[in-house]
Design a protein around this nucleic acid. Structure first.
Lengths: 134, 134
DNA sequence: TTTTCATGTTAGATTTCTTAACATCTCTTG
DNA sequence: CAAGAGATGTTAAGAAATCTAACATGAAAA
């Protein structure tokens, strides 16, 4: 709970996120433009990313590398959105089975974590940045 | 071990560190100038702070608030430096007992963590930033 | 072949950060 | 008390990082 607060604190400038995700600034901004991430802004309008944001970008990257386009990724990410509690209706269940099952997704996103030799050139995978820092 | 790597990754610009520690940029730079912290630098010479750096600044702040001056803080921090393995010689032991015992220090630094209402205005205490994020 | 998608590149404006200098305030100390 | 030292604030000028917007491009879709 307070965990969610920590993980959503705006902390990183885009330069750090670039090195953390190995995405280009252009890509990051493009994904934001298409509502896949929503970094906060500084007073001076600079993007500030949270751990959650970075995790999300890592997920996006993994999906991109699977050959999934932005529309597909948007779908997938929306499916991940906290089920809150509401039991899914039949439509939702079918959607999941049509595209990628939750399970499959999880597996897809759950891979080993590996850092390259130098800082700023790490190449993390899946939505696991949070586990990286503790 | 790999933990140490994570905690020493240069991640934060000074603006974020300011809000995380509630220290002024002037203070942060002054402490660096006097070798109390050693943030990394970006290619363009911007300071980049790690979790360890921020923790250290929070410790410094706590000590400042105790009325200890920079010389004293330098002492205290050097005492905290990983004992590596080497058993301390008598001199060191006496130093510790003269100034502040390890125990006393620990207690001093171990206090509850509290965030202010708004992000960017948190007022963390002691060297516990790492515990804040996980 | 023409569009659309995803990304690269570039330019100009704006923000953030850097160092250095000087100001100020509080302690010490002679 | 006056002088110096320590810690911090404030300001200026320049450099670095980021922003948006526009245009370019290659690959895939239609």
């Amino acid at each position: 709970m307070s965990d969610e607060i920590r993980r959503s604190m705006p902390l990183f400038p885009i330069s750090i996120v670039k090195s953390l995700t190995d995405l280009s600034a252009r890509q990051i901004r493009y994904y934001e433009e298409h509502n896949l991430v929503h970094p906060a802004r500084s007073e001076g309008n600079r993007r500030l990313f949270s751990f959650n944001d970075v995790d999300r970008l890592l997920e996006i990257k993994a999906l991109i590398e699977k050959g999934i386009n932005l529309a597909g990724i948007k779908q997938v990410l929306s499916m991940q959105e906290v089920p809150d509690n509401e039991p899914m209706d039949q439509e939702q269940v079918e959607e999941i089975h049509n595209d990628l099952s939750e399970k499959e997704l999880r597996r897809m996103l759950q891979q080993e974590l590996h850092t390259a030799g130098r800082y700023g050139k790490s190449s993390l995978r899946q939505g696991e940045l949070s586990r990286f820092f503790h």
